[in-house]
Protein backbone atom coordinates (compact mmCIF):
# COMPACT_ATOMS: atom_id res chain seq x y z
CA UNK A 1 0.00 0.00 0.00
CA UNK A 2 1.33 3.43 -0.78
CA UNK A 3 -0.21 6.81 -0.33
CA UNK A 4 1.06 10.08 -1.82
CA UNK A 5 0.13 13.29 -0.01
CA UNK A 6 -0.10 16.75 -1.60
CA UNK A 7 -1.09 19.78 0.43
CA UNK A 8 -2.58 22.68 -1.50
CA UNK A 9 -3.90 25.51 0.69
CA UNK A 10 -6.60 24.04 2.95
CA UNK A 11 -6.88 20.90 0.85
CA UNK A 12 -4.91 17.71 1.45
CA UNK A 13 -4.97 15.36 -1.54
CA UNK A 14 -4.17 11.74 -0.70
CA UNK A 15 -3.61 9.64 -3.80
CA UNK A 16 -3.63 5.86 -3.42
CA UNK A 17 -0.88 4.41 -5.62
CA UNK A 18 -1.92 0.76 -5.17
CA UNK A 19 -4.49 -0.86 -7.44
CA UNK A 20 -6.44 -2.65 -4.69
CA UNK A 21 -7.72 -1.85 -1.21
CA UNK A 22 -8.94 -5.26 -0.09
CA UNK A 23 -8.81 -7.52 2.95
CA UNK A 24 -5.10 -8.16 2.34
CA UNK A 25 -4.21 -4.46 2.42
CA UNK A 26 -7.00 -2.70 4.37
CA UNK A 27 -5.14 -2.56 7.69
CA UNK A 28 -2.00 -1.10 6.09
CA UNK A 29 -4.14 1.41 4.20
CA UNK A 30 -5.93 2.50 7.38
CA UNK A 31 -2.61 2.95 9.22
CA UNK A 32 -1.22 5.07 6.39
CA UNK A 33 -4.39 7.15 6.28
CA UNK A 34 -4.27 7.77 10.05
CA UNK A 35 -0.63 8.87 9.79
CA UNK A 36 -1.21 11.06 6.74
CA UNK A 37 -4.25 12.86 8.18
CA UNK A 38 -3.19 13.28 11.81
CA UNK A 39 -3.96 16.86 12.88
CA UNK A 40 -5.37 17.76 9.46
CA UNK A 41 -7.88 20.57 9.26
CA UNK A 42 -9.90 21.67 6.25
CA UNK A 43 -10.56 19.36 3.36
CA UNK A 44 -9.20 15.93 2.43
CA UNK A 45 -9.64 14.49 -1.05
CA UNK A 46 -9.05 10.75 -1.26
CA UNK A 47 -7.97 10.15 -4.86
CA UNK A 48 -8.77 6.59 -5.95
CA UNK A 49 -7.99 7.11 -9.64
CA UNK A 50 -5.39 4.31 -9.69
CA UNK A 51 -7.51 1.92 -7.60
CA UNK A 52 -9.25 -0.82 -9.60
CA UNK A 53 -10.89 -2.62 -6.71
CA UNK A 54 -12.18 -2.01 -3.18
CA UNK A 55 -13.89 -4.73 -1.15
CA UNK A 56 -15.92 -4.33 2.06
CA UNK A 57 -12.74 -4.41 4.18
CA UNK A 58 -11.30 -1.58 2.08
CA UNK A 59 -14.58 0.31 2.30
CA UNK A 60 -14.54 -0.10 6.09
CA UNK A 61 -10.99 1.26 6.19
CA UNK A 62 -12.05 4.31 4.13
CA UNK A 63 -14.98 4.94 6.51
CA UNK A 64 -12.67 4.54 9.54
CA UNK A 65 -10.23 7.05 8.01
CA UNK A 66 -13.05 9.53 7.49
CA UNK A 67 -14.36 9.07 11.05
CA UNK A 68 -10.85 9.63 12.45
CA UNK A 69 -10.88 13.15 10.99
CA UNK A 70 -13.65 14.07 13.44
CA UNK A 71 -15.05 17.57 13.04
CA UNK A 72 -11.68 19.04 12.03
CA UNK A 73 -11.77 18.03 8.38
CA UNK A 74 -14.12 16.74 5.68
CA UNK A 75 -13.28 13.91 3.29
CA UNK A 76 -14.38 13.75 -0.33
CA UNK A 77 -13.55 10.96 -2.77
CA UNK A 78 -12.49 11.17 -6.41
CA UNK A 79 -11.91 8.78 -9.31
CA UNK A 80 -13.97 5.64 -8.70
CA UNK A 81 -13.49 2.77 -11.15
CA UNK A 82 -16.73 1.08 -12.31
CA UNK A 83 -16.29 -1.78 -9.80
CA UNK A 84 -15.48 0.58 -6.93
CA UNK A 85 -18.43 2.77 -7.88
CA UNK A 86 -20.65 -0.32 -7.73
CA UNK A 87 -19.45 -1.16 -4.20
CA UNK A 88 -20.13 2.41 -3.02
CA UNK A 89 -23.56 2.40 -4.66
CA UNK A 90 -24.72 -1.01 -3.39
CA UNK A 91 -23.65 -0.20 0.19
CA UNK A 92 -25.15 3.31 -0.21
CA UNK A 93 -21.81 4.81 0.90
CA UNK A 94 -22.22 7.10 -2.12
CA UNK A 95 -24.73 8.96 0.09
CA UNK A 96 -22.17 9.43 2.89
CA UNK A 97 -19.29 10.84 0.82
CA UNK A 98 -19.23 13.53 -1.85
CA UNK A 99 -17.92 11.62 -4.86
CA UNK A 100 -16.31 13.22 -7.92
CA UNK A 101 -15.51 11.54 -11.24
CA UNK A 102 -11.86 12.62 -11.14
CA UNK A 103 -9.36 14.63 -9.10
CA UNK A 104 -9.59 17.91 -11.10
CA UNK A 105 -13.37 18.08 -10.66
CA UNK A 106 -12.99 17.43 -6.92
CA UNK A 107 -10.33 20.14 -6.63
CA UNK A 108 -12.40 22.72 -8.48
CA UNK A 109 -15.59 22.00 -6.50
CA UNK A 110 -16.68 24.31 -3.74
CA UNK A 111 -16.03 22.71 -0.35
CA UNK A 112 -19.28 21.51 1.26
Amino acid sequence: MSLVANKNGDTLVLSVESTRIDSASAIAFKDEMFNATRGTQGRVILDLTKVDFVDSSGLGAIVASMKALGDAAKMDIAGLSPVVEKVFRLTRMDSVFRIFPDLPSAQSATPA
Binding site: D55, S56, S57, L59, G60, A61, V63, A64, M66, K67, G70, V87, L90, T91, R92, M93, S95, V96
Partner: peptide, 25 residues
Protein backbone atom coordinates in the same frame (compact mmCIF):
# COMPACT_ATOMS: atom_id res chain seq x y z
CA UNK B 1 -29.75 -6.11 4.62
CA UNK B 2 -27.06 -3.46 4.25
CA UNK B 3 -25.97 -1.81 7.54
CA UNK B 4 -27.90 1.32 8.48
CA UNK B 5 -26.22 4.57 7.42
CA UNK B 6 -28.74 7.03 8.89
CA UNK B 7 -26.56 7.56 11.98
CA UNK B 8 -24.09 10.12 13.31
CA UNK B 9 -20.78 10.09 11.45
CA UNK B 10 -19.00 8.72 14.51
CA UNK B 11 -21.32 5.69 14.46
CA UNK B 12 -21.05 4.87 10.76
CA UNK B 13 -20.54 1.12 10.25
CA UNK B 14 -17.09 -0.09 9.16
CA UNK B 15 -18.19 -3.65 8.48
CA UNK B 16 -21.18 -5.85 7.86
CA UNK B 17 -21.27 -5.18 4.11
CA UNK B 18 -19.83 -8.48 2.92
CA UNK B 19 -22.85 -10.78 2.98
CA UNK B 20 -25.29 -8.13 1.76
CA UNK B 21 -22.94 -7.49 -1.20
CA UNK B 22 -22.87 -11.22 -1.99
CA UNK B 23 -26.65 -11.49 -1.72
CA UNK B 24 -27.31 -8.44 -3.84
CA UNK B 25 -25.02 -9.50 -6.72
Amino acid sequence: DMPELEVDTSNLPEGGFGWPLIQSL
